[in-house]
Computed example of a mutant assay.
Amino acid sequence: MAGPFTITGMTGNSYQLDLPSTFKVHNSFSPDKLRKAADDPLLGQTQPPPPPIKTLQYRVHWKNLDEDLNWYPASNFKYSPHRVRDFHKAHPNDPGPPRKLPEWLKAFEDGLDSYEELDDDLAMDKETKDDFMERLLGV
């Protein structure tokens, strides 16, 4: 697909387009005003990368310290999984919990000293969150 309007000709450096009669503009355009459809880019034209996946982050109130305005990735709290769980129990409509929270809880309860391989800053999908919250809240 080349775009919504067909190029019908070229005069000098301008392209003529087949425009609907309801368009009250001249049908001649310079090439810098035209582009091919996203699924059919021009030679050498690249698509911008998709927007980044939103990661789950938390702000923290540290005891006996001034307010911390920083946001920290969810995986920074994998060694405090019960606090993360309790936060989401108290705030079930907030984004999250982290999708690896059940694994963080198990690793913590198993007494593992390190579980760096469980880093993950993405939130649970809706279905997984619903199941997790149902078990957590005992609904």
Rank of each mutant, 00 (worst) to 15 (best):
G3A: 09
G3D: 04
P4G: 02
T6G: 00
I7Q: 01
T8Y: 00
T8K: 06
M10A: 07
M10E: 11
G12S: 08
G12I: 14
G12V: 10
Y15W: 12
Y15E: 06
L17H: 03
D18H: 08
P20F: 07
T22Q: 09
F23W: 14
H26Y: 12
H26D: 15
H26M: 04
N27P: 11
N27H: 12
N27D: 14
N27W: 01
S28G: 00
S28V: 11
S30V: 14
P31H: 12
L34P: 05
R35G: 07
R35D: 01
A37D: 13
A37T: 02
A38D: 12
L42T: 05
L43V: 14
Q47H: 05
Q47S: 13
P48I: 11
P48D: 07
P49M: 06
P49R: 10
P52I: 06
K54P: 09
K54V: 12
T55Y: 00
T55C: 02
L56E: 04
V60S: 02
H61P: 00
W62L: 02
D66S: 14
E67N: 10
E67R: 14
W71H: 08
P73S: 08
F77I: 12
Y79C: 01
S80F: 10
P81T: 04
P81Y: 04
R85E: 12
R85P: 00
R85N: 03
D86S: 11
K89F: 12
K89I: 07
H91P: 02
D94I: 01
D94F: 03
P95A: 12
P95I: 13
P97D: 09
P97C: 10
K100F: 15
K100E: 05
L101V: 07
L101R: 08
P102S: 14
P102D: 09
E103A: 15
W104P: 03
L105Y: 01
A107L: 06
F108K: 10
E109Q: 14
E109F: 03
D110Y: 02
D110F: 02
G111I: 03
L112F: 02
L112H: 13
D113S: 14
E116M: 10
L118I: 08
D120M: 02
D121T: 03
M124V: 08
M124D: 01
F132E: 03
F132S: 04
F132T: 02
M133T: 03
R135P: 00
R135M: 04
